[in-house]
């Protein structure tokens, strides 16, 4: 496995091409698109034809923040599990069972945290 940074050069090239495509289409549409007169109504925020009421950004439920925090926690768990998963086959072939219990401990600790969050109602969107 000789992973050198050279392998990532095509990715860089693709970033340039994809970004170039996005910029080109946006510019093309800005240049070629029809222009019509603006007016106050057209500039206002769309609220199904009614006059917009209040601010564009209203408050939203704190639950969304909780989901974001939980995401960070559990996504890191997933990332840590990936290297374990990749070498698991060879470990089983060489008879290393402690490998399995290590994962059980790791997932178990996180599962406790998950049960705590569940108990606290962090994932319950229904109440009130």
């Amino acid at each position: 496995m000789n992973e050198s940074l050279d392998n990532y050069l095509p990715v860089l090239l693709q970033i340039l091409i994809a970004a170039g495509f996005a910029v080109a289409t946006l510019i093309a549409s800005a240049l070629l698109g029809k222009r019509a007169r603006r007016n106050e109504m057209k500039d206002s925020a769309y609220e199904c034809g009614m006059l917009p009421i209040g601010e564009g950004q209203s408050r939203f439920s704190v639950k969304f923040y909780l989901v974001a925090m939980l995401f960070v926690l559990f996504d890191i768990e997933v990332v840590f599990l990936v290297p374990w998963a990749v070498v698991f086959k060879e470990a089983v072939a060489s008879g290393a069972t402690q490998f399995f219990y290590g994962m059980l401990g790791f997932v178990g600790v996180l599962f406790l945290a998950y049960l705590y969050a569940l108990n606290k109602g962090a994932l319950n969107w229904k109440e009130s």
Partner: peptide, 8 residues
């Protein structure tokens, strides 16, 4: 591409 490119 040809539609009005409108930025409110």
């Amino acid at each position: 591409i040809l539609k009005e490119d409108f930025t409110p």
